[in-house]
Every structure is written in structure tokens, then in C-alpha cells.
Write a protein that binds this DNA or RNA. Structure first.
Lengths: 207, 207
DNA sequence: CGTAAGTGACTAACTAGTCAGTTACTTCAC
DNA sequence: GTGAAGTAACTGACTAGTTAGTCACTTACG
């Protein structure tokens, strides 16, 4: 029997990731996590403090994982979006955890995520200034749209399939996302100066 | 005291919508719904059958509402996306209900949603054949991307604000979405598509 | 007075969290 | 080496509070 607390922590974390991803915070059961990990329930309280703090740990680890797996590249946004989509399809847990967190804890964005977002925005703004990314939209808005495109067909959307998609379909979707991001972000030579505020023609869709 | 069962049903449904939108299925409390509606808990079981079936009723009603509020227009996709975003910002409940449903009941897409999606795809495919929408991507994939763009900054995403956004910020986001959708869907003359592509993008995103 | 609408009290099952006690591993005197 | 002592890891049993769902009964209305 393993008596190393690091191994125990890791085992509980793995079981908790599975449980939280599937059922969310309110739906997760501490007993189920302990049973799946093969440890006594009390260890969860000893090692993590409680259900909520266990979720914190799980989510934090998941965020760190995706930040490593899909590094941001302001000079290749289509590639970045494609990598993001591919990672989400291959690791559905992370997107589910993110969605649960957004729904069950409105406004509770982890520090890690916030910082990473700011760094991405800054890098994107730089790329826009250099003329390598279209500058019609400000960096923060553009980034949100790119990430949104990369989240198509992922868990938590109505278009997500319960089971894995065929490889061919996945490739087609990845290409679709890459195409969409390219059209959204490729610099447009004919458009002139990037500073001009030429948004949606300033019309009034609704009055 | 109202003794009309239709009024009772509506009252319970309204309270349940609020509760389910906020807490999801697992997190919702039947007692809370009954108390908020001002009726005895047992009426929920009499009128709806149980917690799960109550959620079904709530979600079905919400879906019908959004289908009415933001009718699909394959010839004005930027306007459609903008209207969708605006509706979601103004009525956050519906997006939250949709996300809860996707997370807590994987693969359980209501018939209404499925049918509406098929109709939209068909209409979009027609618009592509007519050359009024870019045809580089198949209709179903293109539609998913457009809806995804319209879901940026809505509930259930990390970018959603807990409280209402300022009117100016909302307008900027709506225009950003419209711009992105236009770039994604406007017919491109240089693409060498069989159907003669004509200028479809008018100066107004919505009529 | 018959019936549909509504109520209050109840329960069986569950659930997060606690706690006294046990087990295995390390340290160190001899 | 060896065994006593100390300690971190771990366990089983328990509790107090919740929760979905039920049921016998009452109320209002035509």
C-alpha cells in the first residue's frame, strides 16, 4: 500500500477530475471520489480541505495543463485555434471543468486564467501593431472571438457529441476553424490604416 | 387566491426557470422553487411529475422563446448573429439553461432544437447555392461557427461578466460579432466558385 | 355536494464533514 | 541488527443536516 502523500494526492486529484468533469461541483459526490481513488474519504479533507477546495485544485491543474499543451502564438492564430480545438476534443474534461466553473461560480476566474488572458491580449496587440494581424478589432475582442471559434464542437455546446468523433470529421472541423480564424485575422492590405474605426457600419439593428 | 391550474403552472415554471438557470439541475432545490412560486411543493409533482420533468418543461419553453426572438436569416447572417448575441446578453437565463442541459445531460438535445438546426442548415445551404453566402465551408459547419461567434461573451463562457455590461461595450461586441460573421460568410469573388458570386453585403447588417 | 386545486407533515435516502483510533514507516539508542 | 518510540498516513463508524418525493387531508368553486 502506497504511503506517499504525493501519490495519494495525485490519485485523489485524478479521481476528482473525472468526477467533477462529469457531474460538476453540486453533482459530484465526495464518497464517489474517495471510492474511485481507493482511499478513505477523510483523506480528501486532510489533503485538500473540502469539496470546494478540491475542485479548485482540480481546475487549477487542468488550466495549467491546457496552457502548456496549446501555447499561444499571435503570429499563427489559425494554428493556435486548431491546436486548441484538437486538444479540447482529445481532452474533453478540461472544457467541461471550465464550463462548470463558469456556471456554478459566476465571476470566479482563476488567477492563472486571467493572467494568461492578459498576456495573450498583449501579444496579440503587438502583432496587430506590426501589421501581421488585422487590426480592425481591438485585441481583447479579437482574442475572445478566436477562442470562441476554437470552442465550437467542444463539450458544453449543443453541438458536442457524447462520444468521440471520427478522425476525418475532426480534421474537417479543425480545418474549418483554422479557415474561419484566418479570415478573421489575416491582415487586409486593401483596408489601409489599422487605426481606423470601421466596425459594423454603425447601423442600428434594433431600436 | 388563484385556483386556475394554468396560472399555477406558469408561476411554478417561472420560479423554476430562475432556479434552474442559477443552480442547474443537480443544484436546484425543489423546495426553493415551490417557496419562490408561493405554492406547495406537492403541486410541482402534481403538475410536472418531478424535478427532471420540470427542467424539461423549463428548457423547452426557453428554447421556444429564443427561436421566436431571433429568427434565422440566411441572407443576413451578421444581423442574425448580432441579434442572437443581444438576446443572450439581455436574457442570460436561456444560455445558462442550454449550458446546464449540455453538461448535465450529455447528448440530450431537445427535438425542437434539433429540428430548428436542420431547418437553419437547409436554409443556409440554399443561400450558398444561390451564391449569396460563401460556400467554402459546408452549411452545417459554417452554421456552427456562426452560432459559436454569437455565443462569445455569453453566460457559461469565461468571458461572461457576472453583471450587465455597459451599453457602449455591448454595442461594440455586437458589432465585433457582426464583423466577424461578415468576413466568414460574405461571398468571395476570387474563390472561383461555379455560382456567379454577386455582392450581397449591403451597408446595413439587418433589415 | 362533487371535484379539482392546494396544504402540512412526514419519511427514507443521502451527503458533507468529523473523530477517535489503527497502521506502516522512520529514527535512534543500545 | 533490534526494538522502542515517535509520527505521518490512513481507516471505519458516526452525525447532523438536507432533499426528493409521498400521502392523508382540507379548501374553494361551479
Amino acid at each position: 500500500m502506497a504511503r506517499d502523500s504525493r501519490i495519494t494526492r495525485a490519485g485523489i486529484l485524478a479521481a476528482a477530475t473525472e468526477e467533477f468533469a462529469r457531474h460538476g461541483i453540486a453533482g459530484a459526490r465526495v464518497d464517489r471520489i474517495a471510492a474511485a481513488a481507493g482511499y478513505n474519504k477523510n483523506l480528501i479533507y486532510v489533503h485538500f480541505g473540502g469539496k470546494d477546495q478540491l475542485f479548485d485544485a482540480v481546475y487549477e491543474a487542468a488550466v495549467r495543463e491546457i496552457l502548456e499543451a496549446a501555447p499561444f502564438d499571435a503570429y499563427d492564430l489559425p494554428g493556435y485555434a486548431a491546436a486548441l480545438l484538437e486538444f479540447h476534443i482529445g481532452h474533453p474534461h478540461l472544457m467541461r471543468l471550465s464550463r462548470w466553473n463558469a456556471l456554478e461560480r459566476p465571476g470566479a476566474v482563476p488567477q492563472t486564467v486571467r493572467e494568461a488572458g492578459e498576456a495573450k491580449t498583449a501579444a496579440l496587440a503587438r502583432a496587430q501593431e506590426e501589421g501581421r494581424v488585422d487590426a480592425a478589432l481591438p485585441a481583447d475582442r479579437l482574442l475572445a472571438l478566436v477562442v470562441s471559434l476554437a470552442s465550437t464542437w467542444t463539450e458544453g455546446t449543443p453541438d458536442a457529441e457524447p462520444e468521440g468523433v471520427a478522425a476525418a470529421a475532426l480534421a474537417a472541423r479543425r480545418d474549418a476553424v483554422a479557415t474561419a480564424v484566418r479570415r478573421l485575422t489575416a491582415p487586409r492590405a486593401d483596408r489601409g490604416h489599422p487605426a481606423g474605426p470601421r466596425l459594423a457600419a454603425g447601423s442600428h439593428p434594433r431600436d
